[in-house]
Amino acid sequence: MNRAAAVLFDRDGTLVEDVPYNGDPDRVRPLPAARAALDLLRARGIATGVVSNQSGIGRGLLTDDQVRRVNRRADALLGGLGTWVYCPHAPDARCDCRKPRPGLVIEAARRLGVAPCDCVVVGDIAADVLAARAAGARGVLVPTAATLPEEIEAAPRTAPDLLAAVRLILLDGERP
C-alpha cells in the first residue's frame, strides 16, 4: 500500500468523547491516546483533518458557531489538525457532504492539497468507512460501544484503538 498523505478522523467517538449534540467547548474530552496518535502522524509529516457529521445544526439543536467553538477547543486540546470539515445538514437533507457520502472526505483532501485516494479515514461507525470508500480513500474502523457488530464484520480494516489504527496506517506506508 502507498503511504498515506493525510489521515482524516471522525470527531465524536473517535477523537473526543461522544457528547450528543455538544455545543459546549467545556465538555470536550479527548479520548485516550488521541493526542499521542496525532503526534505520531505529525512527527511523520502526515497531514491530519477531521470530517464530522453535525446534524444538530440542521435539526435546530446547535448553531454553526457552537460547533465551531467545540471544534476549536478540540483542536487546541489535540495539538492542532490541518482542517476541520463538517456537514451541518439533517439526515433527510440528501446533501452530498453527509457521511456516508463522499463530500466531507473530498473537501478535506482538497483543503489539505492531497488526492482523496491518498487519504485514510478513521472512524467508529460504518458511515465513516463508507465515506472513505465513496471518495476513493481507505478506511479504518475503531469500534466503540456505538459500533454495531455487522459494521465491524463489514469493515475493510479494524483496529482496537486509535493509536493502533495510526500504527497500522504507518505500517501500511512502509510496506512495498
Rank of each mutant, 00 (worst) to 15 (best):
N22W: 04
D24N: 15
P25A: 08
D26C: 08
R27F: 00
R27D: 10
L31N: 03
P32D: 12
A34P: 07
R35L: 15
A36S: 08
A37M: 11
D39N: 14
L40A: 10
L41W: 06
R42W: 05
A43G: 09
G45W: 04
A47I: 03
G49S: 04
V50S: 01
V51D: 01
S52K: 10
Q54R: 13
Q54C: 02
S55D: 12
S55K: 01
I57C: 12
G60T: 06
T63F: 07
D65Y: 09
D65V: 12
Q66V: 08
V67D: 13
V67R: 13
R68H: 07
R68I: 00
R69V: 01
V70M: 06
N71S: 13
R72W: 15
R72M: 15
R72I: 04
R73F: 04
R73P: 09
A74G: 10
A74E: 13
D75Y: 06
D75F: 07
D75R: 03
A76W: 08
L77R: 11
G80V: 13
L81E: 07
V85R: 06
Y86Q: 06
C87A: 05
P88D: 06
P88F: 09
A90W: 04
A90D: 05
A90K: 11
P91W: 08
R94K: 14
C95G: 08
C95H: 01
C95D: 04
D96V: 15
R98Y: 03
R98G: 01
K99C: 13
K99G: 08
R101N: 10
R101S: 09
P102W: 02
G103I: 05
L104D: 01
A108V: 14
A109F: 00
A109V: 00
A109Y: 00
R110K: 13
R110G: 09
R110T: 14
R110Y: 11
R111V: 01
R111S: 11
R111Y: 05
L112Y: 02
L112G: 01
G113I: 06
P116F: 08
D118F: 00
C119I: 00
V121A: 00
V122G: 04
G123C: 06
G123D: 00
A126P: 00
A126Q: 02
D128N: 08
V129W: 03
V129M: 03
A131T: 05
A132S: 02
A134Q: 09
A135P: 06
A135I: 08
A135T: 07
A135H: 10
G136E: 05
R138S: 05
R138A: 09
V140Y: 10
L141C: 04
P143C: 03
T144W: 06
A146Q: 11
T147I: 12
T147Q: 12
L148P: 05
P149G: 10
E150C: 12
I152A: 14
E153A: 15
A154F: 12
A154L: 09
A155K: 01
A155E: 10
P156V: 08
P156D: 12
R157Y: 09
T158G: 04
T158S: 09
P160T: 10
D161M: 07
D161S: 14
L163Y: 12
L163E: 13
L163N: 12
A165C: 05
L168F: 07
L168G: 07
L168W: 04
I169C: 07
